[in-house]
Design a protein around this nucleic acid. Structure first.
Lengths: 339, 339
DNA sequence: CTGAAAGCGCTTACAG
DNA sequence: CTGAAAGCGCTTACAG
């Protein structure tokens, strides 16, 4: 004890079993034709020696690393944490591990992470964060590193993507509010660089436009995606004379900030202010009132994305898919008729 | 285009620069004495060829993989998501990537994950989940795979660990409630296999004992760590005649379940029922009323754990540290005097 | 200061 | 059916 021993290698088991390393390798990988007796013996020895093949070594021979990269803005954000969990489960099931990379939506970080993942020879990268510098995606494609975008889009790039119809999502939110009778609406959007948020706002405005309801540029305020900033923005909106009776927030975090601002200002939700979020995270079930929000079918999206990603290594599809899923309105307690 | 090219290797840059691969390697690693001129030339070529050394290959030569494993019960649980983010930031800063593994507290999963991480030659494993089968930790130690336990303990094992004084945390919760005047208390605990939870309950009971306040075995009910189960357990407690006026929940998820149960039953918090959680997750700031809870100094803990973990590969410390941090009571809105 | 060579732990033709 | 040998992309003594 106390001594540390070198890990057992394929040589150890070959010697112990009295065969060549090639035979051991073949036995493990079910290749070549090995006599049943020999094979059984080899497995027995592997067991006894607690042999575990080195992924590193086999990867160097061009086999897979069984490791995937996942780029998201922030794992500690419940929305992305839930994505990460789904990805992990599928990956684990298929024998893969996943390296989680939080980018904070900083392009420099996504670039750094992608390079790192490349150097580690991951078998694929799932990207759920914005990427400004599309050059890097091109390079990845050239080196044929499988990529897939999830819940985010990057225009005119040759990559698979699976996303929600965010425009439709914005539309759904608007229609719900309109139907309740709201006419003075405002929105808390994310940074304009976040493609999904831009679409949500576009959809929202479009529905208002169709209904003949006006919304001024100063009624959509851009936020960083935190509760705190949502709160700050909502406070400002609430303070305005003739402020909105309903607020569309581009994600649940912002909506929660709005809820807090309302509580602070003594504005009752939904009686005096309706608030609707986006993403249907666990957070939306925890607030009081519970948050009305727009749900994305995340589990399904992750499943599709995962299969596409892992499948890419096998088939070499020249044509890139763009799968669009439908969002759904989840009515809870934070929206109601205006007084 | 459309053609995929092989990645450039050290041979390519050596040839291009008119030197040996050894020189390229030395230049990269700052080893040996290379003439400044040659070195500059080499770097220029690397740049031009966009050369990125293969981590796989260098790992096979016994260098680090710069990859760490993180075992936690569930990334989608905000408490662990926050840990994951802290670990990731430190890791990234130090040039490491982290593979996140959600174990759902299932021993079979931790074992499977650990084997996987071993095969991938990670440089260390941070464990924030319970591990029943300590045999596997012993094996890891034998192979000198650096390990560290965080926020969890495994008795009498030769591993570093950094944790919160959970007993003290339970004590803090009890004292707060006692001081407010509560005499009929109950607790929602996690599975008895979760060492931290067991300690919290022990601390809680001990403080009651010292204060001469009785608590019956049926007043501490064991839950799985979900909002739903916390709700279920709290409902049951609330329904009892002569139910508790205050509830200590071993984590925020359970506390939120309790909040929901109270709301459902028309029981006002904190007027008719005080609820206190544990962990001080983002969730505790989002509920209404906001949750009184016990905070662990997670950032510091992760920092200590990380340094110890990464340090282990360098120094070979025979003696294992056990660092215990102090918890802190965070009073918010969910606790008050009993009516 | 620089390069030839061995070797890390595997896989894969290829020859027998 | 089985094994010797080459090679994956690096690093590290070692000789010059």
């Amino acid at each position: 004890m106390g001594l540390t021993m070198k890990a057992t290698t394929i040589y150890d088991v070959a010697k112990e079993a009295g065969v060549s390393i090639a035979s051991v390798s073949n036995a493990i990988n079910g290749k070549g034709n090995i006599g049943k007796k020999k094979r059984d013996e080899i497995f027995k020895v592997m067991e006894r020696l607690q042999y575990q093949p080195s992924v590193i070594a086999s990867a160097l021979m061009g086999k897979k690393t069984f490791t995937l990269g996942l780029l998201i803005p922030d794992v500690s954000n419940p929305f992305f944490a839930e994505i990460a969990r789904s990805v992990e489960d599928l990956a684990h099931h298929a024998g893969y591990s996943v390296i989680v990379c939080s980018t904070d939506n900083q392009d420099e970080r996504v670039e750094k992470y992608i390079r790192l993942l490349e150097q580690k020879s991951v078998d694929g990268i799932m990207i759920g964060t914005g990427v400004e510098n599309t050059e890097i995606l091109l390079q990845l494609a050239e080196k044929s590193v499988p990529i897939i975008m999830i819940a985010r889009e990057v225009s005119s790039m040759p990559v698979h993507s699976v996303l929600t119809d965010d425009f439709k999502g914005g539309t759904l939110a608007a229609e719900h509010l309109l139907q309740l009778g709201h006419r003075r609406l405002a929105v808390l959007s994310e940074n304009f660089k976040v493609s999904s948020s831009v679409e949500r706002v576009r959809g929202f405005k479009f529905a208002l436009f169709e209904a003949g309801v006006a919304i001024e540029p100063e009624d959509v305020v851009s936020c960083v995606s935190t509760i705190r900033d949502g709160r700050r923005a909502a406070e400002e909106l609430i303070r305005r004379d003739d402020g909105p009776t309903a607020l569309f927030c581009c994600n649940d975090l912002l909506a929660i900030g709005a809820l807090q601002a309302a509580k602070e200002a003594g504005v009752r939700v939904p009686e005096e202010l309706s608030v609707i979020g986006f993403d249907n995270t666990i957070l939306s079930t925890v607030t009081n009132p519970m948050l009305t929000t727009i749900a994305q079918p995340m589990e399904q999206m992750v499943k599709l994305a995962f299969d596409l990603l892992v499948g890419q290594s096998e088939r070499e599809d020249a044509i890139k898919q763009r799968i669009v899923m439908q969002p759904e309105l989840i009515v809870r307690e934070s929206t109601g008729k205006p007084q």
